[in-house]
Computed example of a mutant assay.
Amino acid sequence: MPLISNKGIQMPSSPIRKLVPFAESAKKRGVNVFHLNIGQPDIKTPQIALDAVKNNTIKTLSYARSEGSEEYRKKLTHYYKKHQIEVTKEDIVVTTGGSEALLFTIGSITDPGDEIIIPEPFYANYNGFSVASGVKVIPVISKIEDNFALPKIEDFEKLITKKTKAILICNPGNPTGYLYSKEELEKLKKIVIKHDLFLIADEVYREFIYDDLEHTSILSLNGLEEHAIVIDSVSKRYSMCGARIGCIVSKNTSFIETSIKFAQARLSPPTYALLASEAALDTPQIYFDDVKAEYVTRRNTLINELQKIEGVKVTKPKGAFYCVVELPVKDTDDFAQWILEKFNYNNETIMMAPASGFYSTEQEGKNQVRIAYVLKKEDLISAVKILREALKVYNS
């Protein structure tokens, strides 16, 4: 029998999606499942984006430019300017989602065997993208006790080797919801300049910042022009996960020229999705104000309800729409499967993402889950009640 590659064997399963078969089985048994596992907002996509596809007059659905249409990239520069980010259309490469942006970035700056330092817990697919590129993730652990703040710079520095090519952060963070301050980013700026590394920032949740705090993009830091790479996406910003449009933004011309070669190899991003994404840039500010207010309500509801459960530890996210929750169980992989397979409360149950999949350090996060507060307030209250009752049964 032909053999599967070592790379394929090492490719991790998604902690977000691996429990889907158990959720589907529960639904077939007539059990209602509250999905807390995946960052799929229930917020409506801006009508202006949907109408751009519905009302188009395209006669031939042809290839787009590999780096994305000039019109879209030019319009993106105006969007970034509103966020105090000064870039040109030549600094942008449009990708098929933020996922492809990460793959192009890793492919452009690393060779097999190279290393990228990432504060953990981190977005689970960083592991998968690194394995696909033959790159090693070097984790630096942030702790729930510190609200998942940036680890000490000394912790980063002692991990840097000749093989280190970049530091990768998500700001605000998935899965923690942590928002890096400008002071923390300045510390990272100093270390990447000192060691001549790239600083990659996944900023796809830029719009979702709470408690009157402000987001600082690494592209706004002076002196970081040759080092900064931003990963962006329309998926969460406009609730357009299915469009699969993202981009890479960087002022490093050599990096951009290299990433365009990867873009050319896959030909082009999808034309209809480009149309929708370009139109979405005209979404009025009131849309974001309303969405943010809704997420603040959901966050506060979730945190307040979770804090009522004895033995549960949770931090208050400052951005995005996720939180990492520590549960009074030894193995949340087992618990998350059990709650779908063998438990229901009033014929309802919940689906969560075990947090071990958001770490690359062995045995870290085994008693944690990631919860996405993408459901309405009433459903979140019901979901936490189910969790409370499930913990009583499971631990008995």
Rank of each mutant, 00 (worst) to 15 (best):
P2S: 14
N6D: 08
S14G: 12
F22Q: 11
E24P: 00
S25H: 06
S25T: 14
A26C: 07
H35C: 01
N37R: 08
G39N: 10
Q40N: 03
P41F: 11
I43K: 03
I48Q: 01
A49H: 12
L50I: 12
D51G: 01
D51N: 06
A52W: 14
V53D: 00
K54R: 11
T60V: 15
S62H: 07
G68E: 00
G68T: 02
E71Y: 10
K74S: 15
K75Y: 13
T77V: 03
T77R: 09
K81T: 06
K82F: 09
I85G: 02
I85F: 00
E86L: 11
V87P: 05
E90L: 15
G97C: 04
G98Q: 14
L103H: 15
F104M: 12
S108L: 04
T110E: 10
T110M: 05
P112H: 14
E115M: 08
E120F: 12
Y126T: 13
N127M: 07
I138Q: 09
I138C: 04
V140H: 01
K143V: 00
I144P: 01
E145Y: 02
N147T: 00
N147P: 00
P151S: 11
K152A: 09
I153L: 11
E157F: 12
L159M: 15
K165N: 13
C170D: 11
G177H: 00
Y178R: 03
S181R: 10
E184V: 08
K190R: 04
K190V: 08
V192S: 08
I193P: 09
K194Y: 08
K194M: 06
H195K: 14
D196L: 06
D202R: 01
E207K: 08
F208P: 01
H215K: 09
H215N: 05
E225N: 01
H227F: 14
I229V: 12
I229C: 06
V230Q: 14
D232H: 14
S233R: 03
V234I: 09
R237Y: 10
G246I: 12
T253K: 13
S254H: 15
I256W: 02
T258H: 10
R266N: 09
L267W: 04
P269W: 14
P270R: 14
P270N: 13
Y272G: 05
A273M: 15
A279Q: 02
D282N: 06
T283E: 07
Q285I: 10
F288D: 03
D289W: 14
K292D: 12
K292V: 12
A293S: 07
T297S: 15
R298W: 05
R299N: 06
T301A: 14
A320D: 02
C323K: 01
E326R: 10
L327F: 02
V329C: 09
T332Y: 06
F335M: 08
A336H: 05
Q337V: 05
I339W: 15
L340V: 03
E341D: 15
F343L: 02
F343H: 10
E348F: 04
I350G: 03
M352D: 00
M352W: 02
P354N: 08
P354F: 11
A355C: 07
Y359Q: 04
Y359L: 01
N367G: 06
Q368D: 01
Y373V: 08
K376Y: 13
K377Y: 10
I381W: 10
A383G: 02
E389D: 10
E389L: 13
A390C: 08
V393P: 06
S396K: 11
